[in-house]
Amino acid sequence: MYLGEVIGTVVARRCIEGLEGQKLMLVQPLDENRQPRGAKEVAVDTVQAGPGDFVFLVGSREAALALKQSFVPVDAAIVGIIDDMHRTDAS
């Protein structure tokens, strides 16, 4: 799982079967210092996240397991909204 920030929403009215009705968000993956890392991506939301939320996501096959129907064609899912992240290392 990895860190990210929700930066927007995505609407796709015409989409493949199984993806209809899913809430899609635009996410910027972040590193441990909350700095942007890599390309923005689209993730399905399972926790009612909104733009500006600091979240963690699950990728690959497990992303589909986040949904009730487990064969939805998604490869990233928001699975938690982070209230607090406490760093325990010095850097």
Partner: peptide
């Protein structure tokens, strides 16, 4: 990996109920 932090997420997917979540590198 090295444990470098802890994460608190009140709103989470039910699969994470009762799980301790850590930041690792």
């Amino acid at each position: 990996c090295r444990v470098i932090g802890t994460v608190v997420a009140t709103a989470h997917h039910p699969a994470y109920d009762g799980q301790k979540i850590m930041l690792v590198r």
